[in-house]
């Protein structure tokens, strides 16, 4: 593609290219500015939080202070348990349901599928009042399963898997059946392996969504034992103990670090996953 690049029309050249490059870089710089500012503040003593001086000493003190000021280790553990629980349940439930929608003929299938798609519009994020009451009745308020439950049966996941399974050639299915495999065996031996890239894509999207989710966990949790990172960060940074921005910035970067580092290392996979999961 690069070899014949000069012949591609509408690729800017010369002055136009320079102008476009400048614009793109300027916007990129503006885009990174707030983040760079947070980095600067987090890695320098608070005396330099808002004073820019290239000779300012670098320090990790702020991270140590943040780590010691709140039970972040526990929050990390909670978030880790939360995203693992959600992802594992989503994989199982969505795979089973998608298989039924993709490869079974039965009465009421279209109605059932429509009921599933309804969740794309009425998301659990909106039904906070009723879901809170349900969790109260189930007696599991302030627990990690309570955060996870409304999201486990994901319409988006079912839809995505169904599209993928529908694209699997029927012949493979029939061949397995002739060899005497039952429906579940066919699912595990034929469909799931073929859908691997979609599982990875969906997994990345799901993990980043639930790592970052805030409102519902804020409502439903109440204690250090159940609180995920996002809520922990909010509790930590909203207590009025004389705002030390250096420490708050450090805590903020710390909570986002796993996803941020993962993104920087596996950029292509991240972008492709978000794209694949979005475009379907």
């Amino acid at each position: 593609m690069t070899a014949r690049a000069p012949s591609i029309p509408y690729q800017p050249r010369g002055f136009g290219l320079a102008l476009e490059t400048a614009g793109a870089w300027l916007l990129a710089l503006i885009w990174l500015l707030p983040l760079l500012y947070a980095f600067w503040t987090a890695f320098h003593p608070s005396a330099y939080a808002t004073r820019f001086d290239l000779t300012a000493p670098l320090t990790l003190e702020n991270f140590v202070a943040a780590w010691n000021a709140a039970p972040f280790a526990r929050y990390f553990l909670n978030t880790f348990a939360l995203v693992t629980l959600i992802l594992a349940c989503q994989f199982v439930l969505c795979t089973l349901a998608a298989y039924a929608f993709a490869r079974f003929e039965f009465k009421g299938r279209d109605v059932a599928f429509l009921l599933v798609l309804l969740q794309l519009m009425i998301m659990p994020d909106v039904l906070i009042v009723e879901n809170y009451r349900t969790m109260g009745k189930l007696g599991i308020l302030d627990s990690i399963p309570a955060i996870a439950l409304p999201y486990v049966a994901s319409a988006f996941g079912i839809f995505l898997m169904r599209q993928t399974f529908k694209a699997v050639p029927r012949e493979l299915d029939d061949a397995a059946r002739v060899e005497g495999a039952g429906p579940l065996q066919i699912l595990l031996k034929v469909y799931v392996p073929l859908a691997r890239p979609i599982y990875i894509a969906y997994g990345l999207v799901s993990v980043s969504y639930h790592w970052n989710n805030f409102l519902w966990p804020l409502i439903v949790t109440n204690s250090v034992e159940a609180r995920p990172l996002t809520v922990g960060l909010q509790v930590f940074s909203s207590t009025d103990q004389g705002v030390d921005w250096s420490i708050i910035c450090a805590a903020t970067l710390m909570t986002s670090a796993p996803l941020l580092i993962g993104f920087l290392l596996f950029q292509r996979q991240f972008v492709q996953s978000f794209m694949r999961a979005g475009i379907r």
Binding site: L96, A97, F104, F106, V129, E130, P150
Partner: peptide
Amino acid sequence: EALHAWLLLLPAMALLVLFTHWPAVGT
């Protein structure tokens, strides 16, 4: 086949009803 299909759907459907459809109606 229909029985198999509904068994496959059951867990996801139950949770959807409990945490999406019912709360919407309940609201």
